[in-house]
Simulated scan of single mutants.
Amino acid sequence: MEFEPGLECGVLIKRYKRFLADVRLQDGSEVTIHCPNTGSMKNCQFPDQQVWFSTSDNPKRKYSRTWELMETPVGDYIGINTGRANQLAADAINTKVIQELVGYHYIKREVKYGSENSRIDILLTSSGKPDCYVEVKSCTLLEDGKGYFPDSVTTRGQKHLRELIQMVENGHRAVLLFVVQHTGIDTVSPAKHIDPAYASLFYEAMYQGVEVLAYKAALSPTEFVLTDKVNIL
């Protein structure tokens, strides 16, 4: 995923009202940008550190700028836009970076499925093979040198795990794919200390046959791309 033109940069002042952030530009002026992240963004907000944002030419948007990247005080990069995770995953599948998902002829996005009225992020199909349901999650929480998901209680995430279990019971293949959008994260674990219910369902899903994968993104102001597999702890 390339940004053409490249992202613009500024310095974070603060994030507030969940979906807004104030940024100081290089000329000293201040702007409000859209923050496309529904999580708590724990350990992902660093006032006075550099941020990068994209700009839309859609005149209907109230805030034309979208927060994409955060630099941490130690020089790591964090992908703030959780919506990028699905695109990163789809690109990595198409380019055969995710070897575990090679061999399917068709890829569909946002397909309705399950008994709890969900939408699967990616559905892979091919004649003669079970359908593969891929649920994508963006992982950005780094604590004590380890990556965790989620960064806040997620009833929606719990629902998705139940749906994946149901797909396995129905004879399909189900995959939980963590897209690691933090260059400092090298392992991923369920955040039992944040959402014990999610962690419990995570382990149940694995026991029932849901596959769990994690791939790390290389992040820069010009390009986001999935590169390396990350261990699940």
Rank of each mutant, 00 (worst) to 15 (best):
V134M: 06
K42I: 09
E223P: 00
A92K: 10
R156G: 02
M206R: 06
D27G: 08
S118A: 15
S152D: 09
P73M: 07
Q99R: 13
L88P: 05
Y207G: 08
Y215H: 07
D195G: 03
Y148E: 01
L88D: 02
T227W: 03
E71N: 13
E30S: 09
R61N: 08
L233C: 05
E204G: 09
P196H: 12
L69E: 10
Q49P: 06
F19Q: 02
F224M: 07
H193A: 11
S220R: 04
S54I: 04
S118R: 15
E223K: 09
H172V: 14
D76E: 14
E169S: 08
Q166A: 14
H105P: 01
C9L: 10
F149D: 00
T32K: 13
R61Y: 10
S220G: 07
R15Y: 01
F3A: 13
D186M: 11
R173C: 14
H182S: 04
Y133D: 12
A90E: 15
L7R: 12
V153G: 02
Y113P: 04
S40I: 02
I165H: 01
L233N: 10
F224D: 13
V179C: 12
Q166I: 14
Y215P: 04
T154M: 05
W67Q: 06
S115D: 09
L123I: 08
T55R: 15
P130C: 09
M206Q: 10
G103D: 07
A92C: 06
G171T: 13
V111T: 03
H160C: 07
T72D: 11
N37C: 00
I80F: 04
L123D: 02
Y198E: 00
K14I: 04
I33W: 07
E223I: 08
A85H: 01
N94Y: 13
F3N: 14
G6D: 08
G103Y: 07
P5N: 11
L101P: 03
K146N: 12
N170Q: 15
T155D: 07
V210T: 11
Y203A: 06
V74E: 11
Q26S: 12
L142V: 04
R109N: 12
R15H: 06
A21G: 12
T183I: 13
L201Q: 04
G184H: 10
I194V: 13
V225A: 13
R24I: 13
P73I: 09
N37A: 00
L233P: 04
D27R: 09
D76P: 04
L69D: 10
K216M: 03
N81V: 03
K60N: 14
F202K: 01
D186Y: 11
W67R: 11
Y77G: 03
N86Y: 00
E135W: 02
P59H: 14
M70E: 11
F46C: 05
G39A: 09
K216Y: 01
V51G: 02
L201Y: 03
Q158V: 09
E135Y: 06
L20W: 04
E135H: 05
G28M: 15
E2N: 10
D131V: 09
D121T: 07
V179H: 07
L123W: 05
S54K: 09
C139R: 00
H105I: 01
R173F: 09
R84Q: 13
L233E: 06
H193R: 10
L219M: 08
